[in-house]
Amino acid sequence: MNEATRNIWTITKRELGGYFNSPVAYVFIVIFLLLNGFFTFMLGNFFERGEANLNAFFVWHPWLYLFLVPAAGMRLWAEERRIGTLELLLTMPITAWQAILGKFLSCWVFLALALFLTFPVVATVAYLGSPDIGAILSGYFGSLLLAGAYLAITVATSAMTRNQVISFILSVVICFFLILAGWEPVTNLLVRWAPQWLVETVASFSVMPHFTGFQRGVVDIRDTLFFVSVMIFSLFSTSVILRGLRGA
């Protein structure tokens, strides 16, 4: 392990420890699973559909993550700023990038774990029918990317303020925009007065059209790149925000 990965891992480990040392992590996971169940089985009419796939499960994730991901990530930098440990962390012999990545990864791993715990849903479909395993895997992959994109945005808003609540609201607003820009009811509304190309450009910034492919079992490299770019851009913004903060 070289030094950079070791530093990132050290920070990831600490943050993960931070999650599981407090009851918040368990509460979060329980809420995540309950909401997932509620959306899938109640609103998604999972059983009535009579289909052996997880569309009723994944289709809600953009909305579910809209609140849960900012809630999980809002403390990452805001708390560090509030209690002053930012000064300690950034005077350690590590780069700001290593700290940003470490924090991002810790929360992503945590979300992945929560997502992994939804496997009973998979078991249910497998028991009731013979689902397309490829589609399920690609759905999970897309869901994870989606969570990562929201999380990266939350990491950036978290660095902007020492107040977790403000960080939460900011990231919800930004993620909400990323949903709406390409959500069908909204695009249908836009097409009435805006030129087609504009609607398409706006929609291309949205997570919605990029996420649907994964649900159908299509792992498109462009969709993957979209989510990865959102992550890179947001994490890069975080480093700029952190630098600006200290230069003020």
Partner: peptide, 13 residues
């Protein structure tokens, strides 16, 4: 080695 003014420590550790 640096001791910042407010002596910050991670409170969850």
């Amino acid at each position: 080695g640096y001791l910042p003014e407010s002596a910050p420590c991670y409170s969850d550790m």
